[in-house]
């Protein structure tokens, strides 16, 4: 993965004179903030054998809430809480449909995607929220001990999730459910609780992503988050998390997000229209899954031969 990232950087550096500049590196990292947070939640969901294709629009709804608070000259501290709160609430809604309602995650969140998207249109009424005051931006565009706040928040989020995955029963339960929900249930794991909690965690992380989004761009447009779910799924499976569940890599997700953003940024700089970005993401997803299917098949036959 690291090799792939470096390779992509090398190629684009040669192809575009604007690529290998400090300014552009900052742009790539800046563009990765929201996806790193959403991708972290998606890593947990995929590792659990779940998925959430509505997650980008969840970020949109949280961003609208934050924007409304800022637009009404509300306290930036209230806005700070609003993002994770709305994210958590929508996470509960998703969990209610998918976990309690026993609707398969892909179908349930696809249904919610439709509902949420219309909600975004209705709430925005065809107009962008723009020209928001800079109070939230001032709060988050600072550094603590020389580290930018977004980097700090992301580091804390990844560290917390890593600890939860590797050092607490929750992590074991999540991976066991990802391996087989039925077996996990038979092992006495509180499957419903773990799944519910994971959708809520993903919602909270997405709410934090929305906070950074609004702080950075100071507007909320109609199409907000429309490619986030696709990007997140691509980055996470690029990073080695299994789409079938049971296996995940947090470092892989970080690298997957960076690689995706490096590719998108690089292609833009060499003159590929941004319209093509989802095509790149889509091809990456298909490519990774195709590769996984093929490489899974080969060792399996060898293994079977060894047993026979």
């Amino acid at each position: 993965m690291l090799v792939a990232c470096l390779l992509a950087i090398a190629i684009f550096s040669v192809a575009s004179p604007h690529y290998a500049t400090p300014g552009n590196a900052v742009t790539v990292l800046r563009n990765s903030v929201e996806l790193l947070l959403i991708g972290l939640g998606m890593t947990l969901l995929l590792a659990m054998g779940g998925i959430d294709v509505s997650i980008g629009i969840v970020m949109g709804l949280a961003a609208i809430a934050i924007g409304r608070i800022l637009g009404a000259d509300g306290s930036p501290y209230v806005a700070l809480v609003a993002g994770p709160l709305v994210g958590a609430l929508l996470g509960c809604v998703t969990a209610a449909v998918v976990v309690q309602g026993r609707v398969p995650a892909i179908v349930g969140t696809l249904g919610l995607l439709g509902v949420y998207r219309t909600a975004v249109f209705a709430l925005l009424g065809g107009q962008w929220l723009s020209g928001l005051p800079s109070s939230l931006t001032d709060l988050l565009a600072t550094t603590v001990l020389g580290i930018p706040v977004p980097a700090l928040v992301i580091a804390v989020a990844y560290l917390t999730v890593w600890l939860a995955l590797r050092r607490t029963p929750y992590g074991l339960h999540l991976l066991a459910i990802g391996n087989s929900e039925e077996k996990a249930r038979l092992s006495g794991i509180p499957v419903i609780k773990v799944r519910f909690l994971t959708f809520v965690i993903s919602g909270v992380l997405t709410g934090i992503a929305a906070t950074f989004y609004v702080a950075t761009y100071r507007n909320v447009e109609m199409s907000i988050g429309s490619t986030s779910a696709l990007d997140a799924i691509a980055a996470v499976i690029l990073g080695g998390t299994s789409i079938l569940g049971g296996r995940c890599s947090l470092l892989g997700t970080v690298l997957g997000v960076l690689l995706l953003r490096i590719l998108q940024n690089g292609l833009l700089l060499i003159g590929v229209p941004s319209l093509w970005q989802p095509v790149v993401t889509g091809v990456l997803i298909i490519g990774v899954l195709g590769f996984e299917a093929v490489s899974n098949r080969l060792p399996l036959t060898r293994f079977q031969r060894a047993r026979a």
Partner: peptide
């Protein structure tokens, strides 16, 4: 019959799964 073990977890993790020492 179909052993309710999680193939992706270690032996120790499987033995304690659902009743971990913590």
């Amino acid at each position: 019959q179909e052993l309710a073990l999680s193939e992706n977890l270690s032996i120790a993790e499987n033995v304690f799964l659902g009743r971990e020492l913590k």
